[in-house]
Write a protein that binds this DNA or RNA. Structure first.
Lengths: 208, 208
DNA sequence: AGCCTTTTGTACTAACTGGTATATAATTCG
DNA sequence: CGAATTATATACCAGTTAGTACAAAAGGCT
């Protein structure tokens, strides 16, 4: 049995860690890790620098926390979207979930990972390994879903699953980049629908 | 007849503008606009800050010059690659030209425009409009080449040219992002070959 | 030569950078 | 209550930032 952690000694923190991370993530997302200062982060989170420093070990640590939060909670819900059937509905939901995040209420800011982590990955091994892991995981998940589509009879069995996976991954990345570049959500939706129509047209993904 | 510009009065500049822009571009490419200081730019270009300032009007102007230089001279030679026949060879050359730039001798730094301009586009209208123009031009060029492929008999005439164009553009963007994220050139080549095989497999792009 | 124009190099500034020392406030434990 | 512990807030630091003032240099023009 796990017993509830006995209350910590000393003065209790005046902030909730997740809220701080969330605000920091918003700033990093908008301006990139290099474009945000500790002062701005302090203003936005309400924390003063010493608290930020003791809680996260500095700007790099705070950015890493924001990245982990994105990976665990903020990123598009791939699993949920891909649970749908048939395959076409799953992929449509996948791309729509992308746009929910990339063109959400905060504006057209693209993907936090693709947009900022790649900037930071060059000189931060911890970031680089997370980026690699996320891409690898996405490929694995998509390929598994497409293979299930073949098993379900949603897809012609003679198509190259790896190539199809790459097409979907590439479209995902391109959506993130073009959202960030300012494309309208409706325009981006038009594109992935056109892609799915194309794939469906040459090897119909059946409706059952 | 144009007569040679009479030599300017005053002390002649001790630098060549293009060389300065080239060095600045190298730095911006590696670390992003926000990650480079005027001091670093001064060191790398050999220019002192007042010269940089009078020639480009500050960091933003220098970045814009680097971006324009990339668009005009540094970016992959799309026209040259797409001049080949048949269509498959043209697209192969197009992606190979991408990799020449994205994974060139300077390392895996991706696409200058996709990697850095998107960071800067958010708060710089001049950058945003260039990014939009480049993407639009690339789409136009690719679509025209694919249409020619249909006319040449390289491609089944019933396929959706717009969707095909988007697949190629998406692959181009994804190559840039993944190169930046650290993927090996051979791995990236494997991907676009697999994509072209896939497209060729379902609607053979004839060899003649 | 001597004047004009333009670039160069040094030195400077005021603001900002990430990070920290220190004193104080809030809480638990005894 | 008082001691121990943890967090907060202010003030500070040394280094860096983008940008500038100014005098000297280098060329053309007459």
């Amino acid at each position: 049995m796990e017993q509830k952690e006995s209350r910590r000694r000393g003065r209790p923190p005046a902030y909730k860690r997740e809220e701080v991370v969330e605000q920091a993530q918003r700033l990093f997302w908008k301006s990139g890790p290099a474009g945000v200062s500790l002062d701005e982060l302090g203003d936005a989170t309400g924390l003063h620098k010493p608290s930020l420093y003791s809680a996260f070990g500095g700007k790099a640590g705070l950015y890493l926390a924001a990245l982990d939060s994105y990976i665990e909670r903020g990123a598009p819900d791939v699993q949920g979207a891909l649970a749908r059937v048939p395959l076409r509905a799953a992929l449509e939901a996948f791309f729509e979930a992308d746009l929910d995040v990339f063109c959400g209420p905060e504006g057209r800011r693209g993907c936090f990972l693709i947009g900022t982590a790649i900037e930071a990955a060059a000189d931060n091994a911890a970031v680089a390994s997370r980026v690699a892991a996320v891409f690898a995981g996405l490929r694995r998940t998509l390929r598994a879903r497409i293979e299930r589509g073949v098993a379900d009879g949603d897809l012609r069995p003679d198509l190259d699953v790896d190539a199809l996976t790459e097409i979907i991954v590439s479209a995902h990345i391109a959506l993130a980049v073009e959202a960030r570049a300012g494309s309208e959500r409706t325009e981006l939706r038009r594109r992935f629908v056109s892609l799915l129509d194309f794939l469906g047209g040459l090897a119909p993904l059946s409706e059952a």
